[in-house]
């Protein structure tokens, strides 16, 4: 019985974790911790999307923070300028992100591979801040957009918490479903053996466009939720720090593993709050962390979990043989 329970320790862990998150505001409900949790929900979705693109589809994209920012800005601008409902604006923001990314990164990326896509997406995200400062009248320039209306009037922290938790669950389900669908299998096949996958009839162009469109749509929608939660956004979102945080999340959890990005997001979002104590050295520490993970634990946390899993399976097998 004990052994059987231990074999399902991962499932138990996930259920316990989700229950804890769902009950936390009711039991304890510290507003600051709730804020950190909301950031975690958003970052976990961003990192999981990035992981879908980079880890599963094997496309070296370095511009996902740009996709996020386009969604956030588009939603904020539409909501402020036209006074539409934030929910519609978030969807429009996601679509805007999808159109921009598919047009400027996805389509050129069809002809490219590896390092070229990394450079293209990095430079795409890098040229966004200048465009933002150029269009000051609409985007607020370097000052950013302020007083973006929340999702509905008089929203409380508790309501935002559950809305973002729902977003987290829905998004992760979509990503999980995609990974385990035939589309996800096609991504993995293209990543692992491009020519073999093509020989089996996987349409490379179609799959590539699909993954870019899906990831930018989901990331853009998450950007919309982020901007309506925080109420303002500025080009600093596109600075090096959020980029570094997201990369650290994926590396921490283990690239190409679905639970990895979420685990990494937990650790990095909460760890980042402690790192604030280090003041200006924070970014240096994050950089050092990324280097150390790649050098010493290339598989990230998932490697550790797999190791525990292997031990438990062996233990179970030995018990079965002896009894």
């Amino acid at each position: 019985m004990m052994i059987a329970a231990m074999a399902h320790w991962k499932k138990i862990g996930i259920i316990l974790g989700l229950t804890f998150i769902a009950l936390y505001p009711l039991v304890h409900g510290d507003t600051y911790v709730m804020h950190i949790f909301i950031l975690f929900f958003i970052w976990a979705v961003v990192a999981s999307n990035w992981n879908l693109l980079m880890g599963y589809a094997g496309i070296f994209s370095l511009g996902n923070i740009g996709y996020f920012a386009i969604g956030a800005y588009a939603s904020g601008i539409l909501c402020k300028a036209f006074g539409w409902s934030p929910w519609v604006c978030i969807l429009m923001g996601g679509l805007a992100s999808m159109v921009c990314v598919t047009l400027f990164v996805g389509l050129p990326a069809l002809r490219l591979s590896g390092i070229y896509i990394a450079l293209l997406s990095l430079i795409f995200a890098d040229s966004l801040p200048t465009i933002l400062t150029q269009t000051r009248s609409i985007t607020g320039g370097a000052m950013g957009l302020h007083d973006i209306p929340p999702l509905f009037e008089g929203i409380t922290r508790l309501q935002s918490y559950y809305i973002n938790f729902a977003l987290f669950l829905v998004m992760l389900t979509i990503i999980y479903r995609t990974i385990h669908s035939s589309t996800g299998l096609a991504f993995v096949a293209l990543r692992d053996s491009r020519s073999f996958a093509k020989a089996l009839g996987v349409n490379e162009y179609k799959e590539k466009i699909k993954v870019f469109a899906l990831v930018s749509l989901l990331t853009g929608i998450t950007g919309g939720f982020y901007v309506h939660y925080l109420g303002d956004i500025s080009p600093t979102t596109l600075a090096i720090e959020p980029f570094l945080l997201a990369i650290a999340m994926m590396e921490m959890g283990g690239i190409g593993r679905f639970p990895g990005a979420v685990l990494g997001a937990v650790i990095i979002v909460f760890g980042n709050e402690f790192l604030r104590l280090a003041g200006t050295l924070r970014l240096a520490l994050l950089g050092a962390l990324i280097c150390a993970i790649i050098l010493f634990f290339p598989g990230g946390l998932m490697q550790f979990i797999d190791w525990i899993d292997l031990r438990l399976t062996r233990l179970k097998a030995r018990r079965a043989i002896s009894s």
């Binding site: 070296f60 390092i115 990369i247 050295l281 950089g287 962390l289 280097c291 790649i294």
Partner: peptide, 16 residues
């Protein structure tokens, strides 16, 4: 992949 991310992290470490 790992050299790219490593050099990125190293760059940020050295920069800071």
């Amino acid at each position: 992949f790992s050299t790219i991310i490593f050099l990125l992290g190293m760059g940020i470490l050295l920069e800071n």
